[in-house]
Lab assay of single mutants.
Amino acid sequence: DELVREILGRCTCPDQFPMIKVSEGKYRVGDSSLLIFVRVLRSHVMVRVGGGWDTLEHYLDKHDPCRC
Score class of each variant (00 low, 15 high):
Glu6Thr: 11
Ser43Lys: 14
Phe17Ala: 00
Gly51Val: 07
Ser32Leu: 07
His58Tyr: 04
Val22Arg: 07
Val47Gly: 02
Thr55Ala: 05
Val4Cys: 03
Leu41Phe: 10
Gly50Ser: 11
His44Tyr: 06
Arg39Cys: 09
Glu24Cys: 05
Tyr59Trp: 15
Pro18Gly: 06
Asp61Val: 09
Lys21Arg: 13
Asp15Ala: 13
Arg5Leu: 10
Glu57Asn: 08
Val49Ala: 13
Ser33Leu: 10
Ser23His: 08
Val47Ser: 00
Pro18Met: 06
Ile7Lys: 07
Glu24Val: 06
Arg42Phe: 09
Leu60Gly: 01
Asp15Gly: 07
Leu34Met: 15
Ser32Thr: 12
Phe37Ala: 14
Val4Glu: 06
Arg42Asp: 15
Arg28Gln: 09
Gly50Val: 05
Arg39Asn: 04
Ser43Val: 05
Glu2Pro: 09
Cys13Gly: 04
Arg48Phe: 07
Arg42Thr: 08
Ser32Lys: 10
Met19Leu: 13
Cys66Ala: 01
Asp31Gly: 12
His44Ile: 13
Ile36Cys: 15
Ser43Tyr: 07
Met46Cys: 09
Arg10His: 13
Leu41Arg: 13
Cys68Asp: 14
Tyr59Val: 05
Met46Lys: 05
Val38Tyr: 04
Phe37Asp: 15
His63Ala: 06
Leu34Ala: 15
Val22Thr: 04
Leu3Met: 12
Arg67Asp: 02
Ile36Lys: 07
Pro18Lys: 13
Thr12Met: 07
Asp31Pro: 12
Leu3Asp: 05
Val49Lys: 08
Ile7Thr: 07
Ile7Asn: 03
Ser23Gln: 11
Val4Asn: 01
Asp61Thr: 10
Arg10Gly: 06
Leu60Met: 05
Val4Met: 08
Asp64Ile: 03
Arg5Ala: 14
Val47Ile: 08
Pro14Thr: 11
Pro14Phe: 06
Glu57Thr: 07
Gly51Gln: 12
Val40Lys: 15
Tyr27Gly: 01
Ile7Met: 09
Leu56Trp: 01
Glu24Gly: 06
Ile20Gln: 13
Leu8Thr: 07
Leu8Ser: 05
Gly25Ile: 00
Phe37Thr: 15
Leu8Cys: 06
Arg42Gly: 15
Asp31Cys: 10
Thr55Trp: 02
Lys21Met: 08
Leu34Gln: 15
Arg28Val: 10
Cys11Lys: 00
Arg67Tyr: 00
Gly51Cys: 10
Cys68Thr: 15
Phe37Pro: 15
Lys26Gln: 15
Lys62Gly: 08
Gly25Ser: 10
Glu24Trp: 07
His63Met: 10
Leu35Thr: 14
Lys26Pro: 02
His58Ala: 13
Met19Ile: 07
Val22Ile: 12
Pro18Trp: 02
Lys21Trp: 07
Phe37Leu: 15
Met19Thr: 00
Arg42Ala: 12
Thr12Tyr: 02
Leu8Tyr: 00
Arg28Trp: 07
Pro65Gln: 03
His58Leu: 04
Val29His: 10
His63Cys: 07
Glu24Arg: 07
Ser43Asn: 15
Val38Leu: 08
Glu6Ile: 06
Val45Ala: 11
Met19Asn: 03
Asp61Cys: 07
Lys26Ser: 11
Ser23Thr: 12
Val29Ser: 07
Asp15Phe: 09
Asp64Trp: 02
Leu56Thr: 04
Tyr59Leu: 03
Asp54Leu: 07
Arg67Ser: 03
Arg48Ala: 06
Pro65Tyr: 02
Cys68Leu: 15
Thr12Ala: 06
Ile36Gln: 00
Val38Met: 05
Phe37His: 15
Leu34Lys: 10
Phe17Gln: 01
